[in-house]
Computed example of a mutant assay.
Amino acid sequence: MSIDYALFGLYPYICLAVFLLGSLLRFDRDQYSWKSDSSQLLRAGSLRWGSNLFHIGVLFLFFGHTVGMLTPHFMYEHFISAGNKQLMAMVSGGIAGLLGFIGVSILLHRRLSDERIRRNSKASDIILLVLLWVQLALGLATIPLSAQHLDGGMMMLLAEWAQRIVTFRSGAVELLAGASWVFKLHMFLGMTVFLVFPFTRLVHVWSGFGTLAYLVRPYQLVRSRKLSLPPGHTTPQRR
């Protein structure tokens, strides 16, 4: 079994299985830990800046990668070419990646440099921040590599790999034969984020998506426990 087949043919399914089943089991068995464990009372200023920059950048990157990688080429080829799509992804993803990288750097420095915060941090908190820091740095490192082939060819291969993985089609691993190790490491760490997701504070992301249900839920009916009484009527009092 080749290392590429293990990492990019089997590992994605292991990560997705752990991501989905692990999240379900944690919600079922350990709901009290389903939170982000905020340390807002300690150095709230740096937390505000770091958290806001990180969330803005990462949320944009998450939805951008999801739509960009999983949308088949025939659905947008009449509106935008592969090369222009790659250029748009490089510019917008570069800005969002830089914001996220600055944000996670602030959060990591805050958690490691302040002794009180470090004492109140779990090992998983620090490991997760380091993982995200490296992942965002690698994402930014892919931009110069993408600039070397602006025809969008490599982007199309990576997108086809992702689409074949999620649709259980064969031939996905072979598409990565010419990909740089930077792309491969970025993809590997991205999958690893999903692998560790159920065991970290990242599970609170599910709650964020769950709040969208409030937009379509029916109105809540509230009825008074007091009976409506006609005017002038007094309620007898017990002596």
Rank of each mutant, 00 (worst) to 15 (best):
S2R: 06
L7T: 00
G9Y: 03
A17R: 02
L20S: 09
L21R: 03
L21V: 14
D28T: 12
W34M: 10
W34D: 12
K35E: 04
S36L: 06
S38D: 11
L41H: 10
R43G: 00
A44V: 07
G45S: 09
S46R: 04
L47K: 04
R48S: 08
W49A: 06
S51D: 07
S51L: 11
N52T: 14
F62I: 13
F63Q: 09
F63H: 11
T66G: 07
T66I: 05
L70H: 03
P72F: 10
P72D: 09
H73G: 03
M75H: 14
Y76A: 07
H78N: 13
H78V: 08
I80F: 07
N84T: 09
K85S: 07
K85H: 03
Q86E: 15
Q86W: 11
G94R: 00
I95D: 06
G97N: 09
L98C: 14
G100M: 02
I102D: 03
L107D: 06
L108C: 02
R111Y: 13
E115Y: 14
R116T: 13
R119Y: 13
R119V: 13
S121T: 08
A123G: 15
D125I: 01
I126V: 15
I127M: 11
L129M: 13
W133G: 01
W133Q: 05
Q135A: 10
A137G: 15
L138C: 08
A141L: 15
I143H: 04
P144M: 01
A147P: 06
A147Q: 09
M155Y: 14
M156W: 04
M156H: 11
L158W: 14
L158Q: 15
A159F: 05
Q163H: 12
Q163E: 13
R169V: 02
G171V: 02
L176V: 01
A179G: 05
A179H: 05
V182R: 02
V182E: 04
F183Y: 15
L185S: 14
L189G: 04
M191D: 06
F194T: 10
T200D: 11
L202R: 02
V203Q: 12
W206I: 06
F209D: 03
T211A: 13
L212W: 12
Y219A: 14
S224D: 10
K226Q: 11
K226V: 07
G232S: 02
G232Y: 01
G232A: 02
T234G: 11
T235A: 10
P236A: 12
R238V: 10
R238T: 10
R239N: 06
